[in-house]
Amino acid sequence: MTCSEFRTLLHGYMDGELDLVRNVDIEEHLRTCDACSQVYQAQLALRSALKSDELYFRAPAGLERKVRMATERPERKSWRRLQVPGWMGAALAAAAVVALAFFVLPMFSRRSQTERIAQDVLSAHVRSLMPGHLTDVPSSENHTVKPWFAGKLDFSPPVVDLGAEGFELVGGRLDYAADRPVAALVYRRGKHFINLFVWPSASAHDSAEAAAVRQGYNVLFWTRGRTNFWAISDVNRAELRQFTALVRARLS
């Protein structure tokens, strides 16, 4: 491999996008070329400078409301085009009140339900980090952790071993969130712990991963195969995403 080839491929290497053979080529070149090895060190430094939460612009308060209003506007426009007589306007207004009661208010309550679960998950995570609260069954063996839940929960949580990928299974714990007992699976990434809360979903509808930040902890949650998953940790968002992607890949 020439230095020029190396300096482009290095980026695929650092981003985990190269195949095994090229990875080996890169590492071989790194060992033998001082100049390129320094380029690599400089890129590592750059990467760590970019890994700052302060560079991420979160949506300002109020934008969600604006977006909701914007995405509801087309329906209102089509009503206006109808040119209805006055009495019908009153009837439509009454219908709007009914619609508000039946459609809009439940929508808010659903959102507040998500918010409540986020609070539960945050509290449970913080509590688990206090001395002696992390696990009920400390084990890195998924064959030990999974059966431990039998008889303690009305479902069998999926437990995956991600030790090879750098997320070491530490154990399992019973916890309480979303108004029910849930399984908490504990993983470790370096010095950071990740709690993965799992419980059955009432809905057969899968939902894509969503992200939130609560008191500095990253939260990712999704629903798949009638199961709710909530992951929370102080690892950065990209690493937590890597974790949740691995969990999903293992379970699909």
Binding site: R58, A59, R68, M107
Partner: peptide, 17 residues
């Protein structure tokens, strides 16, 4: 509209960023 809420709205931060 509910599917839109679940699939798209959670990514508001990413969209704004």
């Amino acid at each position: 509209s509910s599917a839109f809420d679940q699939v798209v709205l959670p990514h508001l931060d990413a969209a704004y960023n």
